[in-house]
Design a binder for these strands. Structure first.
Lengths: 241, 241
DNA sequence: ACCTGAACACCGTTCAAGT
DNA sequence: ACCTGAACACCGTTCAAGT
């Protein structure tokens, strides 16, 4: 039907379109809605067609994560290393708030993508520029963990609270009876729903508290001339358990 | 065939057996090998039989996580709150080293199980006993994050290193060219494979560095009379981004 | 040479039919 | 009343057959 010289009416599939549509699906409907079959449907092709452009689903997720990490754009800040490091992490967080599915995809990647290595290179460079030793920077990067990528793993995200007032009352009474300290702790701080990555209480206040605690501690250890080996508090700690 | 008065030759299925066999499967073959169908096979029953004892796979995983968390048994230590808190976390870590699949199951739970609440109650109680205020304890619990459960999320676990010497050499040269600081940082610290939870470098050294950093910082904030509100370093920080 | 329908080897879970 | 085979509604991926 179509003349051989004219391209097909449908835009030909390519890797960029596949990844872009996958990102759109995750943004709109969540990561659990993304399957190779549903993605093929959205693109109006047969599932097998996708395998021309990504070798499998894991590679598609790799590409999606790479694209999201590439969106992280720290603002230019003063040349204080700690403030610069803080801004880089907060920039990552801004990106994660825009892609609520991304943290789940990031934490299942096996190796860092090029964009991830670029991000790590920038962060490590910033910390080293402050004079922190390579081993200290290495430990600080581990201590930051997922916070480098703008989220903190909320292990037991306090799930959706019971909306029924009576059920809420009963849950509270059970907590008070068996877990009074947990209840007191939960009540002691209000959480901001609107600045949280995902469910639970990984909100701005908790995130910045932990971030500043880590960066301040890193600065202190550096100033005190930390070196690898014994515990920083001076207690002896020799040998494996 | 079997007299009606005698029990069936096969031990009748019950919830405890289902959960125990699921734990054994995960310990032996990993969490990815655990399916409702494979578990039923191991127990010599039809898949549907499991649904008499667990309402679905998520509830089975809940029960498995509850059982593992119940295994965490901190040793009795001196009445110093920081040393007690440290031992509780290290006890969790010892348990995770014995069940390498457990961290993946824990991080996908939606709500804390009774055993998890008991663990949190003990930890919060210990921190409060040191005189730390309820809001400070709340923030410290968030800062600990998954470390409370004995693991730290290794976001980009440096995957299996290339065993082929030439491939390793090439990878190193590529890193040196594009990500020199990442390479320098990686080279600066050796990791202990035998004390790591899962792949990557969540080993004893990294884990205790971060744990001590957090507990030391908590102690310092407490001593300095930390109260909720402005940033601990005195910098002003008002309003949302 | 290129594309793809059908199939393969799985999932978790439902449900009606059988004893 | 109890149990379960077959089926449902999915997966990701392979592969041989068709054009």
């Amino acid at each position: 039907m179509t003349p051989a010289s004219a391209p097909a009416a449908r835009t030909p599939l390519n890797r960029a379109r596949v990844v872009a549509e996958a990102l759109a699906t995750a943004d709109e409907a969540g990561l659990e809605s993304l399957s190779m079959r549903s993605l093929a449907d959205r693109l109006g092709v047969v599932p097998m067609a996708l395998y021309k452009h990504v070798s499998n689903k894991e590679e598609l997720l790799d590409a999606m994560v790479d694209a999201v990490i590439r969106e992280i754009q720290p603002r230019d800040v003063a040349d204080d290393w700690k403030e610069a490091a803080r801004e880089q992490v907060m920039a990552a967080r801004r990106t994660m708030l825009q892609h609520p599915w991304a943290w789940r995809a990031i934490e299942t990647r096996e190796a860092p993508s090029p964009a991830a290595l670029d991000r790590m290179e920038a962060m490590i460079g910033t910390l080293r520029s402050g004079g922190l030793s390579a081993p200290l920077v290495h430990h600080v990067m581990h201590t930051l963990g997922s916070r480098l990528w703008g989220f903190s793993q909320e292990v037991f995200a306090t799930g959706p609270q019971p909306t029924d007032p009576q059920a809420a009352q009963e849950a509270m009474e059970m907590m008070a009876a068996r877990w009074p300290s947990v209840l007191e702790s939960a009540m002691s701080t209000l959480h901001q729903q609107d600045t949280a990555v995902g469910p639970g209480c990984d909100d701005e206040t908790e995130f910045t508290f932990a971030l500043d605690l880590i960066l301040d501690a890193a600065e202190r250890l550096h100033t005190q001339g930390w070196t690898p080996g014994p515990r920083s508090d001076g207690a002896t700690r020799v040998g494996a358990p």
